[in-house]
Nucleic acid binder design. Sequence first.
DNA 1: ATCCAGGTACCCA
DNA 2: TGGGTACATGGA
Length: 295
Amino acid sequence: MKTLTLSEKELPFDLDLTFSCGQIFGWKKSGNIWKGVHNGRIITIRQDNRTIRYSGCDKKVLYHFLGLKDNIPEIYQSICTHIAKFTHEKQDLFFLERFLLSKGIRILRQDPWECLFSFICSSNSNVRTIGKRIGLLMENYGTCCSIGENLFPEPLAMGAIDEESLRKCLTGYRAPYLMGTAEYIITHPDFFLKISSLSYPDAKKELMILPGVGPKVADCVLLFGFERMEAVPVDIRIRKIITAQYQDIIPGEKGTKTLSYDTIADFCRSYFGPYAGYAQQYLFATRDVRQELSV
DNA sequence: ATCCAGGTACCCA
DNA sequence: TGGGTACATGGA
């Protein structure tokens, strides 16, 4: 195990919250140690206050993966500045409360394929089931590292599976999505490079070419896999929160009609600013989620 | 049992 | 372009 100590500008950081808030799947905690796959390697991480112990990668990779370069106080300031500009009020107490509950979260920098694979698996399921599903897929089709330690399935492996056996891994109707997307990645080897080079709106359109990738999954992949902090995944929970808390201040949206995906996401970008993705994650990941997951 | 879950594809007006 | 609906399945 290697060790590093978090400096003042790398705080706050909460490993548990970061790994259990629904942005990454397939990681397991035993004792105090989190273990999982990042970029084709098995990594273990534990946190004791400001001490991080880790294995499986070098310090540079870990820093990048964990988003430790992000300056959280600056990000929070940026968000507050944009809120104040939007509302002409001093502060948003609702958001402040949510932020204080989950400020230790970092937006991870996941491997694009691992992230894409995960969020195709995520549709219309709860966080716990998604984790199980991805665990099964890794056990059955992931490259074996050592006994009991598998990586994510490679696109080539996914393309070669018959749908019937894939459906046995709790994938259900998502099975053809996984296979179709794998096939597309195989036949377009520069796909992720292309996504990196495109603007946020164009990258999102391009991702949505893939089967099983709609606006929500595309935003998750852009936020968690491509560092696009302006991406705002709108799921049921975010929809409920924005509707209940902010619908009245969205221009032209006062009333009872349901808000469209883009209305919610665009509002978040204009309300929270360029770090809307972080703001979204603070709203999404409250303490109840943490309790729900910490079994 | 019934409803819900980090949705998407497809159909129809 | 926008609004229903089917889809699989574990959890609560």
